[in-house]
């Protein structure tokens, strides 16, 4: 089965990103294909490398980055939602005159069309949110 996962909430505030991560990992372990993980609404905050959670807690952002590296996962952050909330990569920094970037490894910023394409190309869309 080919899956697209949508994550609507940021890390720590809500369990949605944890649930999405564990679901994605379990699907990969069962041999399913993850077409894309799409981060929308405050979910774009999963893609900042500047978080520093306490050492005795999980690192939600790094966990996604590592899963992406291990399985060549396509982690896409919605550009419109990212611009509102200040998630920036090199291209966005240049386009919008920002003095810093914060995007984490394995994530990329792209358009909402990526979510629709994910739904059209996949067998299932599974949404995690608040």
């Amino acid at each position: 089965m080919k899956l697209t996962i949508q994550v609507n909430e940021g890390p720590y505030q809500h369990q949605a990103s944890d649930s999405a991560y564990h679901f994605t990992k379990a699907a990969l372990e069962k041999g399913h294909e993850i077409f894309r993980v799409f981060f929308y609404h405050d979910g774009v905050n999963n893609g900042t490398r500047l978080t520093t959670p306490p050492q005795d807690d999980r690192n939600v952002v790094n966990r996604w980055s590592e899963l992406s590296k291990e399985h060549d996962l396509d982690l896409v952050i919605c550009v419109a939602a990212a611009q509102r909330r200040g998630i920036v990569d090199d291209g966005e920094a240049e386009r919008n005159g920002k003095d810093a970037t914060n995007i984490a490894d394995g994530f990329r910023i792209s358009g909402l069309g990526q979510l629709i394409e994910g739904a059209v190309q996949s067998d299932r869309l599974v949404v995690f949110g608040d």
Binding site: N8, Y40, H41, A80, A81, G111, L112, G113, L115, I116, E117, V120
Partner: peptide
């Protein structure tokens, strides 16, 4: 909350996909 507005943004972009 912003959910309604950002949902509408998806609908508008999605219209281009002829689904």
């Amino acid at each position: 909350t912003i959910y309604a507005w950002e949902s509408l943004e998806v609908v508008l972009i999605g219209a281009a996909f002829d689904q």
